[in-house]
């Protein structure tokens, strides 16, 4: 099944598409500037550090530490009501430079006892609509 999210990004936000394509292949990829070598996230059309405009998409290990989180119990958007309560985390990736990603905590039916700094690991969750999300769990 193909990801509608990816197809939509290819048209509306091409600079994000390689990341989403990586998710469909269960790979975490981020852009690395071809000029200055800095990783950047979220992907932008120009390098945040040097302004260069080409990048090498690089696979990274899906590991990091918990930077912050919120567990949502009430939400206005109807598509998320069936999964409440759910937790959204910001993870600081294990890389030589500070890079963070936002993602849902993988749901296990147990509300985890989270602490900032907890070691986290990435996995991939395929939704019923075919989209694939990079989600996180304590490791």
């Amino acid at each position: 099944m193909s990801s509608k999210l990816l197809r939509s990004a290819e048209v509306l936000a091409p600079e994000l598409a390689p990341y989403l394509r990586g998710c469909t292949q269960e790979m975490l990829v981020v852009p690395r500037c071809n000029q200055c070598g800095h990783y950047q996230f979220p992907p932008r059309s120009l390098c945040r550090v040097c302004g260069h405009d080409t990048f090498a998409w690089t696979q990274i290990a899906g590991r990091g530490s918990l930077y912050s989180w919120t567990t949502t119990h009430r939400v206005s958007a109807p598509e998320f009501r069936p999964i409440t309560p759910y937790t959204v985390v910001v993870v600081s990736l294990d890389l030589p430079e500070e890079l963070r990603m936002v993602g849902r905590l993988r749901q296990t039916g147990i509300v985890p006892d989270l602490h900032i700094g907890d070691a986290m690991t990435c996995s991939f969750e395929t939704l019923t609509n075919g989209d694939v999300l990079a989600v996180w769990s304590p490791r």
């Binding site: 999210l5 939509s8 509306l12 936000a13 600079e15 979220p42 958007a77 998320f80 936002v102």
Partner: peptide, 12 residues
């Protein structure tokens, strides 16, 4: 683009 493709899918 960040809201639509990176954040909203996760419910943020």
């Amino acid at each position: 683009q960040f809201r639509t493709f990176l954040e909203r899918p996760h419910g943020w």
